[in-house]
Design a protein around this nucleic acid. Structure first.
Lengths: 230, 230
DNA sequence: CCTACCGATCGGTAGG
DNA sequence: CCTACCGATCGGTAGG
């Protein structure tokens, strides 16, 4: 009883500790960012001492790259399942928009860390993995819509598939306010649906060349410096 | 010549050094983020030693808060000038979308740092300043559009003014790809126009309940795993 | 506004 | 996979 503290899990054999490290690293890196997470934090979360990490990964960046590649592969699998489904563009995009936040992979955080925190070689590797695993599958949906003539031509007011994808990813990032920042699943789903609807159909009233009659009586006038700005 | 190195600027009198510090801090914090910028980096950029900063600001966070409040005030001034102009909603939003990147105030970076890097009190202060200086003026444009019946009702497929504002801010963040990441002013302007057009009118072909005839011959079919994904 | 210096924490290594 | 420890860098202070 004096020795054999056995901090967390036995890790009796192949790869289990490594998987634990990758899982905890994913959780911490996505929540706090590469820079803000120390190797000791990760080790603690795994029930290990900090030097033990270096038995499984060469250094902090190597761990980050391995974690992100792993995660991007998983996301790619989920996205390609959705892309292959039949159904109209809107439905498939809604499914994408609901799926991404569920993966707990903060695209904005990934962008920042890939751009700022890793070396040039890892940046190339991860940038490719991101494009291949996330951007390309989603862009395929938009490309499909363009081919079918359902989406506006990129050269006349629309956006090319890759740009459309980045717009979708960007819009998914932030919920309205910092107050009701509940990470409720239903909130995510509602926001996802709103994002896709706005991305596809816009905020403007459809035929609003002539001042639309669509003025809804239930929308009470918003006084700028009270309701909206307050 | 042996002494009196006079590192950068004389700072002969009132507030000039302080303004220099705020300017360099803004540049560095927006480019690299709060955590990644050391107080020594800021001091170096100003031609000062690191402890000299503490004559002007209590600590690193105090400097960050002062810098951000200053900047948000400036942005607020610019936005309110645009909001007050006449002209249709689209034109005012385009001006907003062109103005924001020109201020070199990375909204995503600000979001991250406000949420993760400062204490609870500074977070409250800065969150309020951000809402008052950036969100509210832009939301006023959307509220105006809703009152005039030009925008879809928030409860029937549209978005409320604040949500619409966050969507706009999010969409402005990322240019299409990491390859042609030229910070050209004309690129910014083009991206801004695309964002506003998509936000208002969407990507879908207007009356595409019946499979639109708008299939453009010039849009050559994109093979998923070559052109788009490549 | 400078020199000199502090304790804390970082990523990583030695050696078993 | 642990203990012990390294040099580097961090934000901040003392004292003038």
């Amino acid at each position: 009883m004096a020795r054999t503290k056995r901090r967390h899990s036995p890790a009796e054999d192949g790869g289990e500790t490594r998987r634990t490290i990758l899982r905890e690293a994913h959780r911490l890196f996505m929540e706090l960012g590469y820079r803000a997470v120390s190797t000791r934090q990760i080790a603690d979360a795994c029930g290990l001492t900090q030097p033990a990490l270096y038995h499984h990964f060469a250094d902090k960046q190597d761990l980050y790259v391995a974690m992100l590649r792993d995660n991007l592969d998983t996301v790619q699998g989920g996205l390609e399942r959705i892309v292959r489904r039949d159904g109209d563009i809107g439905e498939r995009l809604r499914q994408v928009a609901r799926y991404l936040p569920a993966t707990r992979s903060d695209m904005g955080q990934m962008f920042h860390d890939i751009d700022h925190e890793v070396g040039v070689e890892a940046r190339r590797t991860l940038g490719e993995a991101f494009h291949h695993g996330v951007v390309a599958p989603i862009a395929a949906i938009f490309a499909d819509g363009l081919q079918r003539g359902l989406l506006r031509d990129p050269r006349h007011g629309g956006a090319d598939p890759v740009t459309a994808t980045y717009l979708l990813l960007s819009m998914l990032r932030y919920a309205p306010a910092g107050e009701d920042r509940q990470t409720t699943a239903s909130n995510h789903a509602r926001h996802a649906d709103t994002v896709v609807d706005v991305l596809l159909h816009g905020l403007a009233v459809p035929n609003s060349s002539h001042r639309g009659e669509q003025h809804d009586e239930n929308w009470k006038g918003v006084d700028l410096h009270d309701d909206v700005i307050g």
